[in-house]
């Protein structure tokens, strides 16, 4: 177990800690949930705090941070809708980030991971499991309020359309979305990077979209997209504001 004094607070989020290692820092998140951890990740407890390793190989959000993404993390007190929560690995970290006053509504449709998601929800006071198909938001409109952010990680060919439809029902006017895009084998002859760019362009109608960030080597053919709903676009399509943010370089990247 690492020595606790080595953990350093980060500026971007009060629950996110970093620990310098040989080549790159590792990231750790102070946990709200009770131990044991959700998926056997490393953890460390000291001075009343318990942090869990935010492993870039296990979580695409952690991979985005490791790859130098500098956008806004889910913030304390926010409500998030998490689509494709599986057994709750990343969803539990998002729950840690939004803290006890925030909420994560976690949608998953496969029965097996869902059973484990329920157990995670029992241990995280702000993680709420919903058994449903993300293609049919009408089926959970009774349970999910408007949210500050949507996190989408479902590796389906129609992932962009799924995000749009959910945004129509749930995303607040200035809401944002974080998307782990699977860009492999959607269309023959189109390289993943180009596929990711096309998805970003398709979303630029209603969102300000940052450049897609490759998640290699942690997740092959996966890209991370950081989207902001432009305030104008929800009423008046044509006058939607142009991208002002995130269109340049996605920040420094290790390797």
């Amino acid at each position: 177990m690492p020595r606790p004094s080595l953990f350093r607070p980060t500026q971007r989020h009060p629950s996110l800690w970093s620990r310098p290692e040989e080549r790159y820092p590792t990231y750790w998140v102070e946990t709200l949930g009770s131990l044991p951890p959700t998926h056997g990740e490393r953890w460390s407890a000291a001075r009343g705090r318990t942090v869990r390793h935010f492993d870039p190989y296990r979580s695409k959000l952690a991979a985005a941070i490791a790859r130098g993404w500098e956008g806004d993390l889910p913030a304390v007190g926010e409500h998030w809708l998490y689509l494709g929560a599986a057994s709750g690995t990343t969803a539990s970290f998002v729950a840690d980030l939004v803290g006890p006053t925030g909420r994560v509504y976690a949608v998953e449709r496969s029965l097996r991971p869902f059973g484990r998601l329920i157990s995670a929800a029992e241990r995280w006071p702000n993680l709420l499991p919903i058994l449903a198909d993300a293609r049919r938001p009408r089926e959970y409109v009774d349970w999910v309020p408007p949210v500050a952010g949507i996190y989408l990680d479902i590796s389906q060919p129609d992932q962009v359309e799924i995000l749009r439809e959910n945004a129509r029902f749930f995303l607040q006017d200035r809401g944002r979305a974080l998307v782990a895009l699977k860009a492999s084998s959607i269309e023959r002859g189109v390289p993943p990077a180009q596929h990711a760019r096309r998805a970003a362009e398709a979303l630029a109608v209603e969102f300000r979209v940052g450049a897609p960030l490759s998640l290699a080597p942690f997740h092959r053919a996966h890209y991370f997209l950081d989207l902001n709903r432009s305030p104008a676009s929800s009423d008046s399509g044509p006058s939607a504001r142009r991208s002002t943010r995130g269109s340049g370089s996605p920040g420094p990247r290790p390797r």
């Binding site: 029965l111 869902f114 059973g115 998601l117 329920i118 929800a121 029992e122 709420l128 499991p129 919903i130 058994l131 349970w143």
Partner: peptide, 10 residues
């Protein structure tokens, strides 16, 4: 409510 609903649905 939501956790009970999740159990019932499962």
């Amino acid at each position: 409510f939501l956790i009970d609903l999740a159990r019932a649905r499962l």
